[in-house]
């Protein structure tokens, strides 16, 4: 067995809950490589919400919180504030992060708190059986949009950037090396990091959106429909979805660091009195 697998995966929890062809395995792989490269396994905790992508961390041989729908970022903020020196990685999905948990994304980004959010976007509610999600393309026929989705999809990276995220990347599972690097950078970045991963769901999105059951073909379609840009200039370019490392801002101070400075100041003042 691969030594990384032995180190990071709880063998007794296997097999995975994921369907064949799911993109979650690639995200898990990229995250494990990033954590291993940084050598931070003992100092890292993972938090996830509800949905397919939120089943990524429970298999990890690490400290993990598998929480309630939409609130992973809120749990992560509490954990981070209680242990400001540790790394917190949040796994979430398009529904978990942008629908029910949208408010928490906005405010965590606004605070610039040092957590890394990995949002796996498969364009659909997979676990409940293929209903419309906030990123489902317009006109797509899903179980809850049988006449076609009426509303425009939302761009997670656009939301995160405009709310104040200081690190933002988007890649597809067809870019495993770039993804690995982005996750590594996101973890080391001192501030709120948002990484979106475009991922195939051959079972649900394959049925209703891509009309294609072959995972690899869906990945190719996602890749073909994406264009790499080096900085954020909006969610699409020439009708294609932008991907790449969009933003890395170092000027804004990180939230827990601000609190620490404030605490030092308060204690200094009270001692001086």
């Amino acid at each position: 067995m691969n030594t990384l697998v032995e180190k990071y995966i709880k063998k007794e929890s296997l097999p995975y809950i994921f369907c064949p062809g799911c993109g979650n395995g690639i995200v898990l792989n990229a995250t494990i490589h990033a954590i291993e490269a940084l050598g931070i396994k003992e100092d890292t905790a993972c938090v996830s919400g509800i949905g397919c992508s939120s089943w990524i961390p429970p298999y990890l041989n690490m400290d993990v919180m598998h929480t309630i729908h939409g609130r992973a970022i809120a749990f992560a903020e509490g954990l981070k504030l209680s242990q400001p020196k540790k790394n917190i990685i949040v796994f979430t999905g398009d529904g978990d992060c942008l629908a029910i948990g949208g408010n928490h994304l906005l405010h965590a980004a606004k605070r610039n708190i040092n957590i890394t959010v990995i949002m796996v976007n498969n364009y659909i509610y997979g676990m409940t059986g293929g209903q419309k999600s906030p990123t489902t393309p317009i006109d797509a026929r899903t179980k809850t949009s049988p006449y076609g989705a009426m509303d425009e999809p939302i761009d997670g990276c656009g939301v995160a950037i405009s709310a104040g995220a200081t690190f933002c990347s988007r890649w597809t599972v067809g870019h495993p090396n770039q993804l690995k690097k982005a996750i590594r950078e996101g973890i080391t970045h001192n501030g709120f990091s948002f990484i979106e991963v475009l991922s195939p769901c051959p079972v649900q999105a394959g049925k209703s959106i891509f009309k294609e059951r072959d995972s690899w073909k869906i990945i190719q379609r996602i890749k073909e429909n994406a264009v790499v840009t080096s900085k954020w200039e909006g969610g699409d370019k020439e009708g294609k979805m932008t991907i790449g490392n969009f933003k890395k801002e170092l000027k804004r101070k990180e939230y827990t660091e601000k609190i620490q400075n404030l605490k030092d100041e308060i204690i200094y003042k009270s001692n001086g009195r």
Partner: peptide
């Protein structure tokens, strides 16, 4: 030596205190 945060709603406040307790 404590931490305080005003959250965006009561839902996240309850979540944050549970997260913090697991942080010890």
């Amino acid at each position: 030596e404590g931490m305080f945060i005003q959250m965006e709603d009561e839902i996240s406040a309850m979540c944050a205190i549970l997260g913090a307790r697991w942080g010890g």
